[in-house]
């Protein structure tokens, strides 16, 4: 389905460490790495164990995001509520405001996975017109 009903809570692993140590982390077989900043990495899905070559690395379960998948046909709809241009290469990671709400986006050939702070997920659902909001 290319249009999600709602955002679902995401379980990931957040690693803050020396940039060189983060460079050496390999993506899990069925997962993805999102480099949020030179010293900040988000691993999807959550890892049971990870080795980081930095003794001061901070490795924590990250449960603060909700995520939803949008098919390629929905990209124009998302671009219309963004003041910045989406990357054209794939795969790609982007961060910025979507409909005025900070998101992180993971672009693949088939579409984009949108991560939003969980406390703001319902706002983004409303602004994107997801699901049935009539009660």
């Amino acid at each position: 389905m290319s249009v999600p009903e709602r955002f679902e809570r995401l379980e990931a692993t957040r690693i803050v460490a020396d940039p060189g140590a983060l460079d050496g982390i390999e993506s899990p077989d069925d997962g993805r790495l999102m480099r949020l900043a030179p010293d900040d990495l988000l691993v999807l899905p959550a890892l049971a164990r990870v080795d980081v070559a930095d003794r001061y690395a901070i490795i924590e379960p990250e449960a603060g995001f909700s995520a939803a998948w949008f098919g390629r046909s929905q990209l124009a709809r998302l671009q219309a509520v963004s003041a910045w241009e989406f990357p054209r290469h794939r795969p790609a990671v982007a961060q910025g405001h979507l409909a005025g709400i900070p998101v992180k986006m993971l672009f693949d050939e088939g579409g984009v996975r949108v991560l939003v702070p969980a406390v703001l997920a319902h706002h983004l659902e409303e602004r994107l017109g997801l699901g049935d909001r009539r009660e």
Partner: peptide, 16 residues
């Protein structure tokens, strides 16, 4: 609107 360049994220509007 003013747009600023972030070395990690690219050019972004000042709202961010």
């Amino acid at each position: 609107a003013l747009r600023l360049h972030c070395p990690h994220c690219g050019v972004r509007p000042v709202d961010e």
